[in-house]
Design a protein around this nucleic acid. Structure first.
Lengths: 208, 208
DNA sequence: CTTTGTGAATTCGTTCACAGCA
DNA sequence: TGCTGTGAACGAATTCACAAAG
């Protein structure tokens, strides 16, 4: 199977979430038109995206909700799960750690890191927490795949470098600083405040 | 001036932030190559983006950092500022409200809404806080441009509809539910957890 | 040489338009 | 007549490639 575009993956994740809530509501079938409306894209786009996972609907009943959810999950989920560590336990790091631990059965939350011992204590009922100097050792030993980075702006690249040396596969960077990466490591920059600037711009733009 | 692509706006915001930190460090000139590296894109892209704002650099010294920052700001900032309200004062809403209030001189944080009186009290030193039923009245009276939506999943579309009726120009939607919009309102869907799913997928993808 | 500015080419993503099906 | 699946057309965004300048 050849590589699936990032945009498609992102929408598949959205469809899946919608399908899960439909399952919860007891809906059994859905048309591309409806799914598109709920996801915020066009029906053609939905059908295109579903082509790549090879699941076919019926022109009469549309798509079977639970079968489709299963097919998307089969594509998206790593069969062995994903091994997660959180680096930085401020408010955001703490919230994300909790959320991942409770809401993502496919993620194993295996370690947290913070230089502050008080912060480390807050998470002791969820996973072991270590000082920053232990990152390389633990990430290697636990073969962590994914790190969530929420340290406070300074030395971001340094933390990233340590994670890369330790063999991390992906970094979710909640820091406002872009990190430079070798090809084979996936980085998602996710500056929360960027969206504020953008919205502020577009709030004014429509006036003309 | 014709319409600038969204992607370009987003990158200009990133460049600007970088330029500001360069100003702080006392750097006076920068080449597209360096700026691109810091922003995580290609030098050609930087030059293209800067074309749209009409600022020219010199082949010898590159771009003047503070002049360029000024030019970008001139394009991005609404001269009259942007009037902001926060709807939903959970942990995230509270954090964003504070951050916007202290870090964004161009945003006026004018109102907050939450159905819970305790949550409302937390922000009393920053801006007036009202019950949900007051949204329409206050948004109209204060001519709010931008709303940050962080309510808890249920009835998201309902809140959005009220905001739209009240004449809002843009909504920053931190809820995991997509909201359906008329053309002339800008909506930025920003599901924080989407990035977790995406990174988890790409953490495994590189194995092959 | 190195770097900017920019047409031209290319790649990527979306939408159109229609065949095939019950 | 609805709908799905998909080749073809289109449009947007990125990269290539090179002239101009010190």
């Amino acid at each position: 199977m050849d590589k699936i575009p990032k945009k498609t993956i992102q929408r598949l994740i959205i469809y899946r979430k919608i399908l899960n809530s439909l399952i919860y509501e007891g809906v059994t079938n859905i048309y591309s038109r409806k799914l598109a409306k709920m996801a915020g894209c066009s029906p053609e786009q939905v059908r295109r995206d579903l082509m790549v996972i090879g699941y076919s609907g019926s022109p009469v009943h549309g798509y079977n909700v639970s079968e489709l959810e299963y097919s998307i999950g089969y594509l998206l989920d790593q069969p062995m799960g994903v091994r997660l560590a959180v680096v930085g336990l401020g408010d955001l790091g703490y919230a994300l750690l909790n959320y991942c631990y409770w809401q993502y059965p496919n993620l194993s939350t295996l370690a947290a890191f913070d230089e502050n011992a008080e912060n480390r204590n807050k998470v002791s009922d969820i996973c072991p927490a270590y000082g920053i100097d232990k990152i390389k050792e633990i990430v290697r030993k636990e073969s962590i795949d994914l790190a969530i980075l929420t340290v406070s702006s300074e030395n971001v690249q340094q933390y990233a470098d340590i994670l890369i040396e330790s063999g991390i596969k992906a970094i979710l960077n909640y820091t406002p600083i872009h990190i430079d990466m070798p090809q084979n490591v996936y980085v998602e920059d996710l500056d929360l405040m960027l969206a504020v600037d953008k919205s502020a711009y577009f709030a004014g733009e429509n006036d003309k």
